[in-house]
Structure formats: structure tokens, C-alpha cells
Amino acid sequence: MIKVGFYPGCSMKGGAQEYQESVTALAKVFDIELVEVPDWNCCGATAAHNMNKELSLSLPARIMALAEKEGITDIVVPCAACYNRLSLVKHELAEDPSLSSKVASIIDLKYQGTTQILNIIQFIDKYITDKLEEKVVKPFDYKSACYYGCLLVRPHSILKFDRVEDPQSMDVLVRKAGGNAIDWAFKTECCGAGLSVSRTDTVARLSGNILKDAVDREAEVVVVACPMCHSNLDMRRPEINKFLEKKIDVPVMYISQVLGLAVGIDAKTLGLNRHMTEVNLPVRPAKEPAVAAVPEKVVITQKTEA
């Protein structure tokens, strides 16, 4: 059993319980135990860095400092917003040692910035991908639109994760799980994010356009890696349907749920029953995994100057 650090953030304990359940269940299949950072706090999300710079640095720094104290080297951060905040703070403190020591005095903990922050895909790639294909028992044979959103890939100059304008990492994972990751246009468009409550109409428009393109291209499922994206695409369905003037029933699943199904975890353990939009995938007769439609001539590596 490998132990890897885990930062749930607020969403895993609330609206996105099924995300944590599926990540934990998936990790277990691959003999990995996720250890929560003890006494963790809020990452600050959008509120802190709009209000108070020091607070926005200190909150994530405290989480990382606590992990360091526990001897945790890798922290898995499934929420894309938390991942973004932790990574950006780590970068900013590494760039400015005097700021780093100031933050250390605020949180009253030793902070070195040595922990590795992993988003869900990086975690899977580091610990699971190599063994994934041999564990697949039920190929996820569905046309999948992988939706990355904004926080996973931007700002590219700091996160340096995947191709910022046309990411591929989730598509690769879905293909390994036997799925057919389709090429579509809205991979990194904004879902409306935190406007979900204050400007629901905007979210309905933005998320609606995303779902419309996926459905137009005959996607059977939208795959996400962010609880915020999930909540907008899944929970705001009544408003979206009103905006689009038609009913869209494509389910939205976390990448951990997709891989979980493929390696044979049951739907309930993965929390699929918790979604607002029912996950009702058609039963496919067992066959060879569908041949992935890899677009020709697309080069995965992006050459960017740091």
C-alpha cells in the first residue's frame, strides 16, 4: 500500500462527495491510500485573492506547511480550483524568498515549498496510468467529450500542464479506459464558474454552449476534473435546458468515475447516484475496445518558451 497525501478542500466534503468517493475507490484498486493533510484549511478559493493578498498566500501555504511537517511529499488535489491556488502560491513563494519568510511567520509554521502539488490527472499519470490498461475489465466504450475548463491548464507559464489551448491528457486516459474521446471545440471554454449563484443566466449560457457542442458531436458523456465545472454542467441543467430551448440529458462524470467504472468498481461506490442529471449509460455488448479516433497530424507536445 502506497500512501499519498490528499487535500480534499471544501467541495469533496460537500457538493462533490462523489468525487472524493470515486478518487478514493480508484486509488484503492491500485493499492494506494490517500492520507488527508491533518488540520487542513480552506484554500482561499476566489474570495481570498480578491480581498487580501497575504491571506490568499497564507491559506495555501499553511496547507503545504502542514504536509511538509507530516513528511508528505505529494499532495493530490482533485479540485481544480484548489490545485490552481496551491500551485500558484507555491510558485509565487518560490520566486520571492522574503515573501516566503513573511508568510511563514504569519502561519507560524516552517514552509519550504518542497511538496509536489498534483492535480487529479497528474496523480493518475504518476501512480496509476502504467497499470491502468491491465486492470480494465469493463471498457468504457462511450463517446466522451473531455472538458478541462480553465483552472487545470491556466496560467500555462506557471502550471506547465498539458497543451493550454487543446489539452489532451484526459483524452489519453479515456482512450486507455477503452473510451472514444472525441475532438470538440469547447475543451477550455469558461463554464461560468462562481457566477453560478449570482448570475445563473450567464452560467446557463456559457455552460449551455459547452453542452450543446458536445451533444452536437454526439457525445454520450462529458468528462470533467473539476467540481465547479461539474456543478455548473450537471446541477444547472434546468436553466441550461431553458436557455437552449431543448432538453439535454448527457451525463457529466468525473474522470475518476470513468476510470472507476472501467476497472470494475460499482456505480454506487463511485457515487454515480449522487448526480443531478441521471447517469444512464446504455449497456454495450462486450467487444474489443473501440479504436480511438486520434486526429491526424496533431502533435501532442507544445513548444512554448518558459
Binding site: R163, E165, D166, K297, V298, V299, T301, Q302, K303
Partner: peptide, 12 residues
């Protein structure tokens, strides 16, 4: 070269 423009679909 083409791989500079994933957002423009050049090559795709």
C-alpha cells in the same frame, strides 16, 4: 511549424 497553433486547429 504547425504545433504552435492548437487553438487554430492548424494541422487538424
Amino acid at each position: 511549424k504547425t504545433d504552435y497553433f492548437p487553438e487554430y486547429g492548424y494541422g487538424k
